[in-house]
Design a protein around this nucleic acid. Structure first.
Length: 438
RNA sequence: GCGGCAGUAGUUCAGUGGCAGAACGCCUGACUGUGGCUCAGGAUGUCGUGGGUUCGAUCCCCACCCGCCGCCCCA
């Protein structure tokens, strides 16, 4: 095994039949998003490193230790070397494209979705890979286009609830919070830091460190002994300015009116620096430690942070790998797990009839039938054994059939065998195998 | 990045310091143009990789690789 090449750590091959499930999820996303009038965007898989440093945040774990970054060397006098990075998420790329193509000049709210691989150098685990797939969407635009409206937040959350329901993922929970404006957050950070000064020495070593470096992270601590202390800490909700409070109240009111259940989680703080005001996660049991199916939030200052115009927005990213796991855990997908069954298996009897069999297969496939083509070198017995596994019917192409123009068709479900003229063959194969004798 | 558990046939897994195993799947035949059920037979493989201990290692020891669980973080 040492000499054979393997997929590198944290990456994997997706094979049938599982890929059918991936396709179903992507198709459902495209259908649901289309109803909300989102259009697809595809951005490059690598970007200038500084894009992520300035958006996601220099001090976040993602940027400080998880990115695949390399120095792209100059290949000509006219080129300059440049630090490039495989994208660890897609929001930064979308906003960069929004700025670069001056989409704000349209005056319209831009509603964009993407599907693609992302890269983070984390320790692999179930539901956590170094190349992983995200489906995400962003609603971004100038304030005059309504990009700051709480209705946009509620609409996106409602869309996500609809998507998960239509996909058949039962038992999701929407965790919702507001982290306030950038100013609210800075104020809260100082309040928290001050409150932690007398408390931190009683907490776990990680919290003692966080209390100094990043007080917000203390709220994420999972050590049981620390929980009572965390309960006593000031809540971010108490540090929000009136504008943020009103905005969040409008989001929750719209969700309640629409009947989208949510769970307020004042301790939900997300690990990307660009989030402001509304933040959320949809979680699912049965995913182990990686229980977040998707996450997102508002990023009202992101465009300006990377040199663009004022362009508030809100978006999310779903972990496609985790949606697959959640669906499999729900066992809602036995159908997709079954191998594909063709409408018919064509069995030429003898290699001399291979060409005739291909001709017939071409005709039937152009009539939109799913056809498995056998091989004249197989004995009929072997053809039947294979056909029984792969197809609903077998069409035998032997000397007799070619001369008479009547093909032998056998229905594996009923076991009935008949002769069918070439003219009637397509119609015959399109009939459900269960309902007719042959 | 830290702590822990595992790696044996295509798959799921037994097993032992002395010839490498089961089930399912696969192949051949009984049956020259008739499958499923049955019966008879067959092949599964560098026992993750490299080193060490030993007369002898798939087994014991070390390192590495990879996966999984927890932490961290996140989707």
């Amino acid at each position: 095994m040492s000499q054979t090449l393997k997929a590198v750590r944290g990456t994997r091959d997706l094979l049938p039949p599982e890929t059918a499930l991936w396709n179903r999820i992507e198709t459902t996303a495209r259908q649901v998003f289309a109803r909300y009038n989102f259009g697809e965007i595809r951005t490059p898989i690598f970007e200038d490193t500084s894009l992520f440093a300035r958006s996601v945040g220099e001090e976040t774990d993602i940027v400080s230790k998880e990115m695949y970054t390399w120095e792209d060397r100059a290949r000509a006098q006219s080129e300059k070397p440049q630090s490039l990075t495989l994208r660890p998420e897609n929001t930064a790329g979308v906003v960069r494209a929004y700025i670069e193509h001056k989409l704000g000049e349209t005056g319209q709210l831009q509603k964009l979705f993407y599907i693609g691989p992302q890269f983070r150098r984390e320790r692999p685990q179930k539901g956590r890979y170094r190349q992983f797939w995200q489906i995400g969407a962003e609603a971004i635009g100038p304030p005059s286009a309504g990009s700051e409206s709480p209705l946009r937040d509620a609409e996106i959350l409602e869309m996500l609830a609809t998507f998960l329901d239509e996909l058949g993922i039962a038992g999701w929970t929407l965790e919702l919070n507001s982290v306030g404006s950038a100013a609210d957050r800075a104020r809260y950070n100082e309040i928290l830091r001050a409150a932690l000064v007398p408390l931190a020495p009683q907490m776990c070593v990680d919290c003692q460190r966080r209390a100094v470096t990043n007080p917000l992270r203390v709220l994420d601590c999972k050590v049981p002994e620390d929980q009572p202390i965390i309960e006593t800490l000031p809540k971010i909700g108490d540090s929000l300015g009136q504008e943020s409070i009103d905005h969040f109240a409008a989001v929750t009111a719209a969700l309640e009116a629409a009947g989208v259940p949510y769970h307020l989680n004042p301790r939900l703080v997300r690990g990307l620096d660009y989030y402001t005001r509304t933040t959320f996660e949809f979680t699912h049991g049965g995913l182990g430690a990686q229980n977040a199916l998707l996450g997102g939030g508002r990023y009202d200052g992101l465009s300006e942070a990377i040199g663009g115009p004022k362009a508030p927005g809100i978006g999310f990213a779903m972990g496609l790998d985790r949606l697959v796991l959640a669906l499999q855990a729900a066992e809602a997908v036995r159908k997709d797990a079954a191998p594909q069954i063709a409408d018919a298996y064509i069995a030429p009897l003898g290699e001399a009839l291979n060409a005739a069999a291909l001709t017939l297969a071409r005709e039937l496939r152009r009539a939109d039938l799913h056809i498995e083509l056998g091989d004249g070198a197989f004995r009929l017995k072997k053809s039947l054994e294979i056909a029984n596994k792969l197809a609903r019917r077998i069409v035998i192409v032997g000397e007799d059939e070619v001369q008479s123009g009547n093909l032998t068709v056998k229905n594996f479900l009923t076991g009935v065998q008949t002769k069918v003229s070439r003219a009637e063959l397509t119609a015959c194969l399109k009939k459900p195998a269960r309902e007719v004798p042959a």
